[in-house]
Nucleic acid binder design. Sequence first.
RNA 1: GCCCUUGUAGCUCAGUGGUAGAGCACUUCCUUGGUAAGGAAGAGGUCUCGGGUUCAAGUCCCGACAAAGGCUCCA
Length: 653
Amino acid sequence: MMINITFPDSNTREYPSGVTGYEIAQSLSSQLARDILSITVNGQVLDITSPITTNATIKLHKWDDVEGKHAFWHSSAHLLAEALESLYPGMKFGIGPAIENGFYYDVDAGNEVIKESDLVIIENKMLELARLKNTYHRSDISKKDALDFFSQKNDEYKLELINDLTDGTITLYKQGNFTDLCRGPHLPSTEPIKAVKLLSIAGAYWRGDEKRKQLTRIYGITFPKQKLLDEYLVLLEEAKKRDHRKIGKELELFTFSANVGQGLPLWLPKGAALRERLENFLKKIQREHDYQQVITPHIGLKELYVISGHYAKYGKDSFQPINTPAEGEEFLLKPMNCPHHCEIYKSKPRSYKDLPLRLAEFGTVYRYEQSGELHGLTRVRGFTQDDAHLFCRPDQLKDEFKKVIDIVLYIFKTLDFPDFTCQVSLRDKTNHEKYIGSDDNWEKAEQAIIEACEEKKLSTIIEYGEAAFYGPKLDFMVRDAIGRKWQLGTIQVDYNLPERFELEYIGSDNQKHRPVMIHRAPFGSMERFVAVLIEHTAGKFPLWLTPEQAVILPISEKYNDYAKKVLKLLNNSDIRAVLDDRNEKIGKKIRDNELKKIPYLLIVGEKEMEMNEISVRKQGEGDKGAMKITDYIDFVNTEVKNMLQYEINNDNI
RNA sequence: GCCCUUGUAGCUCAGUGGUAGAGCACUUCCUUGGUAAGGAAGAGGUCUCGGGUUCAAGUCCCGACAAAGGCUCCA
């Protein structure tokens, strides 16, 4: 019997029933047959050795496809497990999936401790096993047989996994001496796995549950060619050079001190200047959107957070209350600004005509993050939110939400952040206990966000269980240099705090109504935003933002006086320039200042002094020739102005 | 918080139980130069901190603190 196989380009060919992906590839070209790693058949990714018995639409996956790499790395995870089982007999296995870059396996080594120094030994074992070219053999198995097999092996983790599976869907894969519970797909054999690197070792809770046993997770990556591995390792090294912690130190933007405390950044003059410019940039946008700046204290009475619900939720895990000489009086360092802003809302009666009321504050907050979570500027214990709370009528909610989306998109555009994802964070579908507020309000809030995103034509991904405990949110996620995802901007709809604080306004019907609240922070926090900005720009900040825009380099000390004159002219014209009047040769000064990533190097010597000029060298680009000082000032000021051209088209950014 | 790893000069790092090192940065002097490293000399250390083992500890062991990679968490 023949079946029709349809290819991605819609061409169809006939093959005998039972044909495999490998055979199909072979019929097209022998090179393709060597390269294919997995196959999608009617939307399902399968082994290339799986027989196809019905008419099907297929796609063959090579190394360049995610599905191809996935099969490759998934098979590599099994290879790792095989190596571990042979080196550590009796080891128990958790799960071992392919991930975005490579794979991991979670194992329980019993009393053995696997150390980083053991990784090379394991790598070598993997390569040794790979060279045996063992096939990955798939078998369907009944639940009972599966349970028997892993009982005999005494592998409680696999038993737990099997118990959650339904009979008839259970498959095992075996290569060499190792058999694993697995859905597949896998490579036909270990043959293509030519290069192996085990990257790191970590603790990981079984099934992600902090209360359960911590297994040992081994991360690795494999490639079909040694050259690809070498390139990947170079790429990793390059990425590490963009690390904001490294660049922050080199460019003297921020530092930490063990005496001040973990996770409490100290902003150095250049970092503070940069941050201040970012704040002014946002303040200007907010002024145009009728936000009003407010200022609130860094502490608040504990009762304030009891009202908001934050105390019940986070009180135990926060910086503990500050006591005063007054008996029983307790203050908390503020972990967020919303309760303070609610009190501002309540400071006088509000009419529907006053809404939306938009209160903004660069508010510094303190959260006692777990010590193991702290990370440079991206996760800290004291940070400043570019916060604002929008109090509006229910009918204004969607419009307000959309206007905030515009602001976030404008900021990302101005700062040239191309790769962000919009994540709609909703409640956990099943577990509603983690959240406060009525189902009705939650549904309204979730609906408003989804509709606003649709109307702004944002492509979003929806994540259940990622909402804040008081409401759903839209998060703007950006990756750092080594691919970790961080939440930057966030917009959150909240029906709950207005209730808890009993916020009201008088409607046109002369009745009391409850406003809806939007929490929003386009940067997220100044700390995290600057961190990600550093990694995206590798420290080469846009001209309008960078701490030092130009450095003047006299050819020799004879021209220092002229250089000082130029410096004064530039500084008086709002250009942030500095002078390098060290007794060094010009080549040396150029090198040093290029490394400091200052956008313009202005060289002055005899020629320039005579002509009232400067020679302009652009960072990373080289000599641009001589210019009159006044022309240069105009040029820079125009460039800065163009970068900050403020125009938001509400419908189309 | 948990698992693994690390901590030596301002920075990057060498130093495998027996006198504390290098490069860069810094200071002084020579040099006064034309688009990515001129030369010489000098200064700089409680080897993170506290215990222990040893005739002897930067080095081995224990603890604390901090940092890195991950898990969990993230208002």
